[in-house]
């Protein structure tokens, strides 16, 4: 198995337009096992996106190292797929070509032609290959964006609240779809979420982060077999444990946590 992420003493500061320094990440240490499903949860504005972007190489850390399978990451690369908070599909490409973008960019489209069709099936977008993003619903765009991020078989999928903007029903369907994708692709998944329920339902481990500056508050192993039942007592126990931890960290979470 490949796709181990090791985050060592990572520190990141921003200077906002007023010239104030904002510490977004303070001494973050985390090891993520290859092939595991990990959720990052924490109050809004704490630095979850910053951490994910640092792993992607989109904004490198000020100090500390992030390694993928022992090699430090410095720039974005196709070994780490990234699903952005907004789907960010290229509006000038149809769904088929959006998903094929990475393969074409790296010149491996010919060898991997079947891959695009397979992913389109997996995310349930058969029949919409020729549609443009503006013709699709928000949920369909997110599914296409996930397929695009997975097309090159990345070792790690980084997903920033991919389901954040969706209604509850679509969201639950897509959680199952994400689990299917994960099983099919044998990759490591690091997903940011602000939904405790979602974190418990999906993850092997839930990383609770503190309010800004983000530190790892606690890592909780979810020892439940899949498929998981949201109504069961032990599920509720994990849920309560995470919520308490978030409160304990001095954060009143968004209303979303209770929904």
């Amino acid at each position: 198995m490949v796709g181990e992420i090791r985050i060592d003493h990572v520190h990141k500061e921003f200077v906002n337009p007023d010239g104030d320094r904002i510490t977004a990440l303070e001494d973050v240490n985390l090891t993520i096992e290859p092939g595991s499903f990990v959720s990052l949860i924490g109050p809004s504005g704490c630095g979850k996106t910053t951490l994910l972007r640092a792993i992607a190489g989109l904004n490198p850390a000020d100090s500390g190292t992030i390694c993928l399978d022992g090699k430090p990451v410095s720039a974005p690369g196709a070994d780490r797929g990234y699903a952005f908070q907004q789907a960010n599909l290229f509006p000038w490409l149809n769904i088929q070509n959006n998903i094929a973008f990475g393969l074409k960019a790296r010149g491996v489209y010919r060898q991997e032609q079947g891959e695009v069709g397979r992913l389109i099936n997996l995310v349930g977008l058969r029949g919409f290959e020729r549609s443009y993003p503006h013709q699709l619903s928000g949920g369909m765009c997110q599914r296409a964006a996930l397929a695009r991020a997975l097309a090159g078989h990345p070792k790690v999928l980084l997903a920033d609240e991919p389901l954040g903007a969706l209604d509850a029903f679509t969201r639950m369907n897509m959680q199952d779809m994400i689990l299917d994708l994960w099983k099919e692709h044998h990759m490591t998944v690091i997903m940011v979420t602000h939904d405790v329920d979602e974190a418990v339902y999906l993850s092997d481990r839930v990383v609770v982060m503190s309010a800004r500056p983000a530190r790892v508050e606690q890592v909780i192993d979810i020892q439940l077999s899949r498929p998981r039942d949201r109504g069961r007592g032990d599920f509720m126990d994990y849920r309560r444990q995470i919520l308490e931890r978030l409160h304990f960290a001095g954060n009143t979470p968004d209303l979303d946590y209770y929904l």
Partner: peptide, 24 residues
């Protein structure tokens, strides 16, 4: 964000210019 998407998909400089910047 379009350039960032392209970068995470492994696109090089020319792809970013001609397949992202130009069509956009």
């Amino acid at each position: 964000s379009y350039f960032e998407v392209a970068a995470t998909l492994g696109a090089g400089r020319w792809t970013r210019i001609f397949k992202v910047g130009v069509p956009a």
